[in-house]
Design a protein around this nucleic acid. Structure first.
Lengths: 331, 331
DNA sequence: CACTTGTTTGCAAACGTTTGTAATAATTTT
DNA sequence: AAAATTATTACAAACGTTTGCAAACAAGTG
């Protein structure tokens, strides 16, 4: 591996000049800069990342922790993050917790080992609270994505899930439905709770009673949506519409309904939440609550990088997105 | 941030002893080791990654380049990789090329900057050949996943796609089909070519003529499968079966057929390739060629780490998996 | 020409580890 | 009890950068 000294020797100049030249610092003669740049290129010189970050204390890396990178839900978030990151030259280091508390500490270690400059935690659950607060105390630049912790020091980028749940339910109500079921997400996740509350609010506003029998709980996966729908199909009097806490469960519900021979949306209307890429491809295409995931990922990275570059600001950023409904054919 | 010196001072010992104690080197008295470990924990000491890798020349990180991490296709690969990596304590650094040659050079820089110890390239296309060979010359430990370049120095983990294509087609032939269409992947990707050739071989073996009209080309995406199938439905005489080069295109085909009112598999049988998670959830569940992606990801990392630990071996590893058919209901 | 000013370059320290070797302490052997 | 051996610890160099400051050089000024 060629080092800065090799380049320096070749050009006949000291390492410090090479460093300055390559980093575009001012105060080096244009002609020597050119010579240096050329030599560096010829020799295939790349500054050693470890050496550099040892002295600058900068890694230009942002650690991202999420439950499972390969959930289709994260797709757009990741793309948005990468867009921002590549614009500012940052590298993203992904880490999957797989919902294990132990694994979510990986990120903590990364911070202490100075492998990352900043951190994004996406969709954390309640158990991780303590460890998140530790980050705040250590003044680590970070943002919480997909969640709002009402602590003014914590930067949050999230969706108004309450409003989303309200919107979805309201849409069904406006279509004349009065028996509307809800397949909720796992309790313990704030998003699930918020969407449920939005659902209740809309019901209440319409003067309808909240019926526990019409609420099923799942863990955001296809199978749970399928099973929950199977049960709901047996409810008496039958429900005529169902709002699922996410699209993946809606897919399962769609399938269960199709198997029962009922028609969507004539017999039962379905509305999902998230607007996954696949949601426009189901049969029928899924009406759903759109979440600007790309945008949110993009902003999360933008905020962290700006914290990194301008120094942490005292008061946290709270970026709340308002969801909207994408009307397709299932409701 | 607490450094090794802080810990040393606290315990009343030199930094070198602390280093040895914490790294479980032999030659430090048990009682002092205990004191050191305790102090380190209390003080929240974490070794600085940059400083360490500067002297050891080890980052314990493997760079992974793929087209787009968020394709559902990669899901199982990633999980397999993470499994191996976490077992040996390695970190995975993902990088998306988004099929741009420029972005695929990111990894090259990572290697030169010594940010990664080894590299995995998954599903590269032909254009990247030159840059791959450069890695070989620089003796960078790496494996090529999802592809075989017939260079004995290159470690490859891949599927026998030719056999897979053969198997899928043979299955349809055995069911009595004689007009079998193929929705192929993008030319320029070896996998697409191989699967096509397997298809031809099976046809030939059965004494059937290869009919160009029955082969469509897509870019592995839903829309292309859908469009291709729409066209195929108009072919005369009609085809009674279709083999798609991947599952995502099969999903599109399924939809196109459903819309035409034909029944699957009675009127048209469909067989896919990959066995995505979602493939068992389509309507009807998709018969497909299974690819052990988890296993392959796992092995790829295992090979790189073992190269890293035992020093690069001269002759490359060639790990070829044989696909098998998962029979569901679409064919 | 001497003097100031400004530009360009070099020196050396620092970043936090690891590690070979020397020094010291503890233990065993004679 | 001295010598030899072994176990434990300390020292110092090294890894490849960056950067404050001093040195050298060039150019302009009186």
């Amino acid at each position: 591996m060629t080092t800065i000294k090799d380049v320096a020797k070749r050009v006949g100049v000291s390492p410090s000049v090479v460093s300055r030249a390559l980093n575009n610092r001012y105060g080096v003669k244009e002609s020597t800069r050119e010579k240096i740049v050329r030599a560096a290129k010829e020799m295939g010189y790349y500054p050693n990342a470890a050496a550099r970050s040892l002295v600058t204390r900068i890694t230009a890396t942002i650690g991202v922790m999420m439950a499972d990178l390969s959930e289709p839900y994260y797709t757009q978030i990741i793309r948005g993050m990468e867009f921002s990151a590549s614009k500012t030259g940052y590298t993203l280091l992904f880490s999957n917790s797989y919902e294990s508390l132990e694994k979510s500490k990986v990120l903590e270690k990364m911070v202490y080992a100075e492998r990352v400059d900043g951190v994004i935690i996406v969709g954390s659950n309640v158990e991780e609270q303590e460890y998140i607060l530790k980050l705040v105390e250590k003044k680590v630049p970070f943002v919480l994505l997909e969640r709002d912790i009402p602590d003014p020091r914590i930067n949050c980028v999230y969706l108004d899930n309450f409003y989303g749940g309200y919107l979805a339910t309201k849409y069904l109500l406006d279509k004349g439905h009065t028996r509307i079921a809800h397949i909720s997400g796992k309790i313990g996740f704030q998003v699930a709770l918020d969407r449920l509350e939005g659902y209740k609010k809309a019901l209440h506003e319409a003067g309808l009673l909240f019926d526990k029998e019409l609420v099923m709980t799942g863990n955001f996966v296809w199978q749970d949506g399928y099973a929950a729908m199977k049960k709901l199909l047996r409810s008496q009097p039958p429900c005529t519409a169902v709002f699922t806490a996410n699209d993946t469960m809606a897919f399962g519900a769609l399938q269960a309904i199709a198997e029962s021979g009922l028609s969507i949306p004539k017999d039962i209307a379905v509305i999902g939440f998230d607007d996954l890429e696949f949601s426009s491809l189901t049969n029928p295409p899924l009406t759903t609550v759109h979440q600007p995931r790309y945008e949110m990922g993009k902003e999360a990275v933008r905020i962290v990088t700006s914290l990194l570059q301008q120094g942490a600001s005292e008061k946290g950023v709270k970026l709340c997105y308002r969801p909207e409904i994408i009307i397709r054919r299932s409701a």
